[in-house]
């Protein structure tokens, strides 16, 4: 079996908060592995432990128990040479310019001058900040800071990217650019784990999605399989319904000329079509609606409660 890019095994972390040192379990025997070359979406409500997981991986927070490894080696200073990190709402030294920021991080990752001079203009082009390279970061908007954040994470061309809410603060154009960057990283064979509340992005980009709640891993789903296989319900659009129809409860939306109906089974849907047609109505469209990640996520949340 090949070594996982990231392996988290039985990691627990409890904080003490407030004056009386009340215990708060941030991670509860969390085990998770991210395979080489995959994009894993890391989902969960606020305070579920997503950021803590990332910080434990980067040795910013020391776990109470459990082990963490990166490409089979302990997740220590040496292993971090292969990791790029974008924190949620990244903060940088505001007195530095965009270019200085990237040089600074490049130096901290042991990059030589020549390598930096070649790499940094490429990155500024990639994130669309060439025009602002000599501007100090205090004049940057939130979206621009997010872009410089992903650029610094990529500065030494790392094998793994850990991205905490990479889409936050970005406009639609910026989101698309960020998606393209992340997908481009996968094409280059990099491994990406990112947290997000924007489930449609996870659906588009991820191979798998892990859901964490209250510090525990609740579920891991193969996103493509889920989207291919699971039919959530069937939808029928028709021009009218028979009089005294028993399907009034199935109406989702009604306009002057169209009625949208929703039902769970295929057999029932076909019966409905037959009745509509017998009563002189016209079926305009009919088909299965696949389950999406949002429905799945909400469903798993309800089950937990």
């Amino acid at each position: 079996m090949s070594t996982a890019a990231i392996s988290i095994s039985g990691v627990s972390k409890t904080y003490r908060t407030g004056f009386w040192g009340k215990k708060f379990v941030a991670l509860d025997a969390l085990s998770l592995s991210v395979e080489k070359g995959e994009i894993l979406g890391y989902l969960g409500p606020n305070g579920a432990g997503k950021t803590t997981t990332f910080k434990v991986l980067l040795d910013l927070i020391r776990p109470d128990s459990g082990t963490l490894s990166i490409f089979g080696d302990p997740a220590d200073q040496k292993a971090r040479e292969r990791v790029g990190y974008l924190p949620e709402n990244p903060y940088f030294y505001m007195y530095l310019t965009a270019e200085e920021t990237l040089h600074f991080h490049g130096r901290l990752r042991g990059m030589k001058g020549e390598a930096r001079k070649k790499r940094i203009p490429e990155l500024l082009h990639l994130v669309g900040l060439e025009h602002a390279k000599s501007r100090s970061l205090k004049k940057f908007s939130r979206g621009m800071l997010q872009r410089i954040g992903i650029a610094q994470a990529l500065v030494n061309n790392p094998d793994i990217l850990i991205l905490d809410e990479p889409m936050s603060g970005l406009d639609p154009n910026g989101r698309k650019q960020m998606r393209d960057i992340i997908l481009g990283c996968r094409d280059q064979g990099k491994t990406v784990i990112f947290s997000s509340h924007i489930l449609s992005d996870v659906e588009i980009m991820c191979d798998r999605a892990a859901i964490i709640r209250q510090g525990k891993l609740q579920e891991i789903v193969q996103v493509s399989e889920m989207l291919d296989n699971k039919v959530a319900h069937w939808e029928i659009t028709c021009s009218s319904l028979p009089e005294n129809s028993p399907y009034e409860d199935c109406i989702v939306h009604k306009t002057k000329n169209q009625i949208l109906l929703k039902t769970n089974g295929e057999v029932e849907a076909k019966k409905m079509i037959q009745k509509i047609e017998e009563s002189g109505g016209r079926v305009l469209s009919f088909g299965p609606q696949r389950v999406n990640l949002e429905e799945f996520y909400n469903q798993s949340g309800k089950e937990e409660k």
Partner: peptide
């Protein structure tokens, strides 16, 4: 306080 430390310490430095 300014959270600049996260990005710095995520680099391969002790």
């Amino acid at each position: 306080e300014k959270r600049t430390i996260y990005v710095i310490l995520a680099n391969p430095i002790s």
